[in-house]
Amino acid sequence: MAQITSADAPLIKAVGLRKVFPPAKRGGEPFTAVDGVDFELRRGEVFGFLGPNGAGKSSTMRMIGCVSPISGGELTILGMDPRVDSSRIKARLGVVPQEDSLDLELRVRENLLIYGRYFGLKRAEIAERTAELLEFVQLADRAESTVEPLSGGMKRRLTIARSLINSPEILILDEPTTGLDPQARHVVWDRLFRLKQAGTTLVLTTHYMDEAEQLCDRLVVMDHGRIAAEGSPRDLIERYSTREVLEIRFAPGSGDHESALAKAEGLIGTGERGSIDRLEELPDRILLYSDDGEAALAAVHGSGITPLASLVRRSSLEDVFLHLTGRTLVD
């Protein structure tokens, strides 16, 4: 039965969505992993959830994937309610879970075959798609291999291929590149980008800001089960950070770090050239936010601070996150 939805209706809509886990022990406290989040997924976009460990990203993805019942709020996926239509929703989703759930008792090709069968697809149809998909993720030459000896990147690619067997309308990827080496990550990014070009709508989670910046049209920054900010990567950087950042480091244990911090605070909002908007202190460095990093560095030197090392760079989502939460993304 075709779902009648207008072209610009959101594919996923969450309002005040909550996930509360029951206490592990009798008499313990229930744990709120997702604490009232609102978001909408539009057709054709790549939508990201950026947040540190424990932010509630996977909990949210699992609710979207209809494998975790919602504890509160509203969730509509493809115009349907997961509590009523989970099977019909899942038939139109592709899921790459945070941890690979490949069938280790089966070979590469068989993994795709049986997964397609779970969707009720015909064998001939699956065989055709399998050939295309293995080609797409560059695993055609490993089709008859067992899964176990594949590298982490290959397993991830196989999981992605598997998630595409039913030609999903929405592809959900929970940390698609965590644990992969840089080269493997780029291969995955490239494939995801091609999927987007081909019109697939993607939802992904990551705690890599570069991944979010590269792939996402829109993203939410998530922390402690809540959404701290929402927008395109560029929007967010403009809204919550300066154009450039000056990073300065000092010899550990010298006391320079502390004295520099006090002096640097005097540079905030002076209105002069090299004036800084604000600063953030990290254990190993101080970040000075300014629209002109080089001028800020000159001002730093002028105020008698002599850092061991300095670096001027463009603002990134990492800075947005730091500003919003006071913490770094990857610790």
Partner: peptide, 14 residues
């Protein structure tokens, strides 16, 4: 250890 039931439940299987 298998996680294969998790994989199945991501599909229309119940």
């Amino acid at each position: 250890y298998g996680r294969i039931y998790d994989a199945m439940l991501a599909t229309p299987l119940r």
